[in-house]
Amino acid sequence: MERRAGLRERKKNATWELLKATSLELFTERGYDNVSVAEVAAVAEVSKATVFNYFPTKEDLVIGGMRHHTGDAARVVRERRRGQTPHAALREHYLHLLERGAPQTGLSDNPMFLKVQGLLASTPSLMVSAMDYRRRSAVELAEGLIEEGNPALTARLVASQLMHTQYILVEVNVHRVLSGDPIEEIRAAAVTAAEHAFGLLENGIGDLMRREGDPPADAAFTADGCRVDYTPGETEAREAAERVLAEPTDEMLKALTDPPR
């Protein structure tokens, strides 16, 4: 029984790997929006139903793994030691992940990981979905802090700042990896960046970047926040008119835009 169970598990893992690799290859070659799930199934020589058994949606073929990590931050904070702040717990956890080279930190040169990141950068719909997973992480973290008895507003502000700081750190790492920088070189800089970023959260922004001189001459704004020389709707109206006049669609417009007529 154990041997059969082990065989089934290996077969399932092999099928998952096949579908993942096949889809990423097709999406990278032809573009995510230009490949259907049916085409992925055909190339992998399985049924469409089999694909959906392993990946409930098309986007899961690329970023489905993010769903399994939305609760990570909330769990780390919930399990933190007595006397430890949420910020300190997440910093410790993130540095530990950096040391391991975990993909969640963006510090990976695994070919499959690189393809996923390339598709994220080139596919707006996937980027929006990834941003929603990140939003869920912040929501779950805030809910955990609220359950501890913290004020809702404070919990949401803290969760948002903590998670967004981590996302920026990850994005920097991903950008360097995609640029071809050596992993070990990136790791050293990533640790320094993480200490700096979480240090800002711990100590507060305070007087950081206080302007010592006068603002640039062209930076004048009115009391309602608009630039002094800004006329509401003017730019938008001009751009819309230029688009319409560039492609007249009926006789009246043609007459108006054709001087001889």
Rank of each mutant, 00 (worst) to 15 (best):
M112T: 14
A155W: 00
V116Y: 08
Q166K: 10
L119K: 08
A152E: 15
G149W: 02
F113L: 00
S129L: 15
S160N: 12
L120E: 05
A159W: 00
A155I: 01
A159M: 03
R135A: 11
L141Q: 04
E143T: 12
F113A: 06
S129T: 12
E147V: 06
H164C: 06
A138G: 13
M127E: 12
E140Y: 11
L114H: 03
L141P: 03
L120N: 05
A159K: 02
H164I: 03
S160D: 12
L126P: 01
S137A: 14
I168M: 14
Y167S: 15
T154M: 07
L153Q: 13
E140H: 11
R134N: 12
S137N: 10
E140C: 07
G149E: 06
I168R: 15
E147C: 02
L157R: 09
E148W: 07
V128Q: 12
A138I: 01
G149N: 08
L114R: 14
L119T: 08
S122Q: 13
V139M: 12
Q166F: 07
D132C: 07
L153R: 13
R156P: 00
R134G: 12
M131P: 00
S125M: 11
L120D: 02
L141Y: 03
L141W: 01
T123M: 05
V139D: 15
T123N: 11
M131Q: 09
G144K: 07
Y167L: 15
A159Y: 01
R134T: 13
G144Y: 02
T165V: 05
V139P: 06
D132V: 10
S122W: 04
E140N: 09
L120H: 04
S122F: 02
L114P: 09
A121Y: 01
H164F: 10
L157E: 11
M131Y: 08
T154K: 10
S129Y: 01
L120T: 04
A159H: 03
E140S: 09
Q161H: 04
S125W: 04
A142Q: 06
N150P: 00
M127H: 08
I168H: 14
E140P: 03
D132E: 15
V116T: 13
R156A: 04
Y167H: 15
L162M: 08
T123E: 06
M131V: 04
L162R: 01
V128S: 13
